[in-house]
C-alpha cells in the first residue's frame, strides 16, 4: 500500500518525502481546494520546487482541486487544473463532475483521482465516474466498514484509497453543509469548515468558550483537552442533556487495521492534515511508514508498536483515537 501525506507548505512537503511518503498531496492558495486557510498552501513557485524535490527522491505529487466550482466561476477551477498539469502533477484529486469533465477532455492522459469530497460510497457511484471520466483511484468517504470496503473493491477496477490517520469527519464528505449553515462558508463552496474568521475563543468564568459566528460550540474547563471548534464536535443540548451530540473531538487511527486493509486490496493509505505543521507531518508519516513496512514484511505477525501509538496519540485531536467507521463500535 502507498502512503499519501498532506502538505500545506513546502517545508511540510520536504518533511513528508524525507519521512518516507510515497506521494504528497497539496493545494493551490485559493478556494479550489478543501483546505483554503489563511496563510496556508502553495504558490506556483513553491510547487515547482516541491515537485522537483519529490522527483529527485522518486516520489509523486498529487494536486487536490477538490471543492465545487461555484456558479459563474468555473474558469477558476479550470485554471487550477491547467496549473496542476503544467506544474507536473502525477494525479489530480477532483470532486466536481464538471471539473472532472474539463480535465478529462483537455488532458486525456492525465491521471485523475476522485476526491473524498466526491461522495462515492459504493461501486455503482465509483464505476459511473470511471466510465465517464476514467478515474483511476477513488478516495473513500469515512463512512464505510472494512467489510463494505472489501465488497466494494470486488466490484470495481478503480484503485481504492482510504484515510488511515487524522482528524475525523463524522459526516459523509462532500455532503455536509453544517459549516455554511452556521457561517456561510463550507467545504463545498469555500474550501473551509468552521472557518477561522468566524471562530472566537473567549475566557469566561474560568472556562474557555469556543464560538462560531456567535454560536456557542463548546465550553472547556481549564485542563480539559480542546478540539477545533468544528461545529460537529461541540457539546450541545438535546432534550435537556449536554453532550457531544454528533461526535467527540477524535482522530481516526487505523494503525491496527493495516494488514486487513492490505489484504482486501486497498491501494493507498492517506494521512489527513494539510493544515498541520511540518513537525506533525514528519512524525506521523515516519510512524505510518514504519507500520506499513512492518505490515508488508510480516502481515501475520504484525502488531502496532506502543511507540507508534504513542506518537500518533500525541498528535490526535482531543487526544483520542478511534477506528471510526471502519469497525463501527456504535453499530
Amino acid at each position: 500500500m502507498e502512503l499519501i501525506a498532506p502538505a500545506g507548505n513546502l517545508a511540510a512537503l520536504k518533511a513528508a518525502v524525507l519521512a518516507g511518503a510515497d506521494a504528497v498531496y497539496l493545494g493551490l492558495k485559493n478556494a479550489t481546494n478543501a483546505r483554503n486557510f489563511a496563510g496556508l498552501n502553495f504558490t506556483e513557485a513553491d510547487i515547482a520546487q516541491g515537485v522537483a524535490f519529490a522527483r529527485q527522491h522518486g516520489r509523486q505529487v498529487l494536486f487536490a482541486i477538490n471543492t465545487f466550482a461555484q456558479p459563474g466561476r468555473a474558469q477558476e477551477w479550470r485554471a487550477a487544473v491547467d496549473a496542476a498539469c503544467r506544474l507536473g502533477a502525477d494525479a489530480l484529486i477532483l470532486a466536481d463532475p464538471g471539473v472532472l469533465a474539463y480535465a478529462r477532455q483537455r488532458y486525456p492522459q492525465q491521471r485523475l483521482h476522485l476526491s473524498v469530497q466526491g461522495s462515492a460510497t459504493h461501486a455503482d457511484a465509483i464505476e459511473l465516474m470511471r466510465e465517464q471520466f476514467g478515474i483511476q483511484r477513488v478516495v473513500l468517504p469515512r463512512v464505510l466498514t472494512v467489510t463494505d470496503i472489501a465488497r466494494l473493491i470486488e466490484k470495481t477496477t478503480v484503485e481504492v484509497e482510504v484515510f488511515g490517520f487524522g482528524s475525523l469527519c463524522v459526516m459523509a464528505e462532500g455532503r455536509c453543509l453544517l459549516s455554511s449553515f452556521a457561517t456561510g462558508d463550507s467545504p463545498n463552496n469555500r474550501g473551509v469548515c468552521s472557518p477561522a474568521h468566524a471562530v472566537r475563543w473567549q475566557p469566561r468564568d474560568g472556562q474557555m468558550e469556543a464560538r462560531l459566528n456567535g454560536l456557542l460550540i463548546d465550553r472547556y474547563a481549564p485542563d480539559e483537552p480542546a478540539g477545533y471548534p468544528t461545529l460537529c464536535k461541540g457539546r450541545f443540548m438535546v432534550e435537556g442533556r449536554r453532550d457531544h451530540a454528533l461526535e467527540e473531538p477524535t482522530s481516526l487511527n487505523a494503525l491496527s487495521l493495516l494488514p486487513r486493509l492490505a489484504a482486501i486490496g486497498v491501494r493507498a493509505i492517506k494521512i489527513e492534515g494539510r493544515q498541520r505543521s511540518p513537525a506533525y507531518v514528519a512524525q506521523v508519516v515516519a510512524t505510518l511508514r514504519a507500520a506499513l513496512d512492518a505490515a508488508q514484511a510480516a502481515p501475520a505477525r504484525y502488531q502496532p508498536q506502543p511507540d507508534w501509538q504513542h506518537t500518533l496519540a500525541r498528535h490526535a485531536e482531543g487526544s483520542q483515537t478511534t477506528q471510526g467507521a471502519f469497525d463501527r463500535p456504535w453499530k
Binding site: P222, D223, R276, A279, R314, E317, G318, S319
Partner: peptide, 11 residues
C-alpha cells in the same frame, strides 16, 4: 519543533 495544533489540543 512542535505542531501548534497539538499544543492547542493539549491546552
Amino acid at each position: 519543533q512542535v505542531d501548534a495544533d497539538t499544543l492547542f489540543f493539549q491546552r
